[in-house]
Amino acid sequence: MLGLALLAAALLSVGVGSTEIPVGRALSALFGDGDPVERAILVELRLPRAILALAVGAMLGLSGAVLQGYLRNPLAEPSVLGTSNGAALGAVAALYFGLADLHPAMLPLLGISGALLSLILLLLLTRRSESALSIILAGIAVATLAGAGISLALNLSPNPFAAMEITSWLLGSLEDRSFRHVWLALPCLALGVLLLAGQGRALDALSLGEDAAASMGVDLRRMRLRLLLGLSVGVGGAVAVTGAIGFVGLIVPHLVRPYTDRSPSAILWPSAIAGAALLALADVAVRVIPSTNELKLGVVTAFLGVPVFLAHLLRERRLW
């Protein structure tokens, strides 16, 4: 069922947009002959956008599932590590100092650097401990610091238009993303997924607490390093390209969990798939909902996600 949803989301994501292109013409445009304008729309505009939506959504869903399992907290979501704020700060710096205008790759590159810097700070802060709780605290500190940096940029922005540019970037969007963005984000996302894969059993063991997990052969220190790296690089790469897209990482694991045996390992890949489908569908919604300014993706995921989330919680009659 998840697979079907994913397929539908992917097809809609390529097929729907402000220009209507019938299926037959779309296929012929994709495979060589056909109208060059339609081909350009499909390949240059919609395809990268669809790929990014799927990849970023998968990363956010997976990260949320991993973090909830690792921190053993149903409220955890990728932004608690502070690296998404770090990435946002990097991107905001690019906008603030006008570096973004020098080259289109500057903004995501600075975003990724921001994520890595905040990861280094996080690792320095949690160097001496093995516990997951210290990560939450250090993550909040890093996130708050980066958040303060963003506020500072808004505070000092020379004119309302600059502030507007920063704010609207922060809302998160996949508008006008090209294959250049895809090539920047994909390596980060792939590395993130690679590092997070194969941690399911260790996460399961952690559901009995850290001592029990260690006694079952889990190397807590190595596991933490691996998860932190994977999450920061992956989420940082995603935020650097799309801006902050909230709620996907928080909600998706909760939506998926009732259909599994509720162990942390069982929700990892379903969360990735559901995250991809959800974000791609939200991006389709962005395009079809009529509005004067195009709606921002982060806004739509929040409006779409929260009611679904609440309905789901009420139906489950428990908070996790």
Binding site: G69, R72, R201, D204, A205, L206, S207, L208, G209, D211, A212, S215, M216, G217, D261, R262, S263, P264, W320
Partner: peptide, 23 residues
């Protein structure tokens, strides 16, 4: 090793929980 305090963070089925011992 069986730690003190009956820690259990997720609502797992009993069989699944006991199965963690095979990790």
């Amino acid at each position: 090793y069986l730690p003190q305090g009956q820690t259990l963070h997720w609502p797992l089925a009993v069989e699944r929980l006991v199965g963690l011992g095979r990790l």
